[in-house]
């Protein structure tokens, strides 16, 4: 058994709300300095920086769990984790049909940069990523599972963009094994309010939008061995 230090929710500069220095190499190097074993970069509704992050992570010897923070049509944030770049890019190609195509106003939301593995800007995504997609929650969950991924409702304790705030509860038939709590919210505090979710597996990540926010070695997941398949299985339950 290993206790892996993880941060499974980090935004890159592709998310308009993230700071410009959240480049693939900066994220990986900061995670390395902080001593993390596994990270996941989950941008809003897009996987455009994962190839570059993956290269940087390989070089630095950190495991990257390919991820994405999808916003469903009900405005629920759903973290979607996949076993490989190939599978998450399959997800991306389906997702391309479900954008609302609201143009990004950089002056309001910020730029959405895709970078290469040397942190050079490649292109900007023109449509706004921090908004809903046309995928409803149930379709989204089925799709992610079909492609081999694991859906995890994000920051379920929050009063906005969470499955509980938007639907009132977590539908049992969606069989979510893992729930994400916001940084600083303990499982005990959450369960005081929502004891019905005591059987779930909880993760706590940084939701980092700048380099300083990335977790230290403070959140651990016990795994058989340090691998992407092992962590994915743990999340899937």
């Amino acid at each position: 058994m290993v206790k892996a230090a993880v941060d499974l929710h980090i935004h890159s500069c592709l998310s308009p709300c993230a700071s410009d220095d959240m480049t693939p190499n900066n994220i990986v190097m900061m995670s390395k300095i902080k001593g993390l074993d596994i990270i996941s970069v989950c941008d809003h509704n897009h996987t455009g920086n994962l190839e570059a992050v993956s290269k940087a992570a390989d070089e630095a010897g950190i495991l990257l769990l390919p991820g994405l923070e999808l916003e469903t049509s009900e405005e629920i944030h759903l973290l979607c984790y996949f076993p490989s770049l190939e599978s998450i890019f399959n997800m991306q190609s389906v997702l391309n049909n479900y954008y609302l195509n609201i143009e990004n106003r950089e002056d309001i939301f910020g730029p959405q940069w895709i970078m290469d593995a040397s942190d050079r800007p490649v292109r900007k995504v023109e449509h706004l990523l921090t908004t809903a997609t046309k995928l409803d929650l149930y379709s989204c969950v089925s799709l992610v599972r079909e492609i081999g991924g694991v859906p995890v409702p994000a920051h379920v304790d929050r009063s906005s963009y969470s499955i509980i705030s938007n639907l009132g509860s977590i539908p049992g038939d969606l069989r979510f094994n893992t729930l994400e709590l916001s940084r600083g919210v303990s499982k005990e505090d959450f369960l005081k309010k929502y004891p019905e979710y005591a059987d779930r597996f909880f993760i706590s990540s940084s939701d980092a939008h700048d380099l300083g926010m990335i977790l230290e070695r403070e959140w651990f997941i016990e795994l058989e061995k340090l691998s992407i398949m092992d962590i994915l299985e743990k999340l899937r339950g």
Partner: peptide, 8 residues
């Protein structure tokens, strides 16, 4: 109350 809809 759907921000995406209000946006559009």
């Amino acid at each position: 109350d759907l921000l995406s809809m209000a946006m559009a």
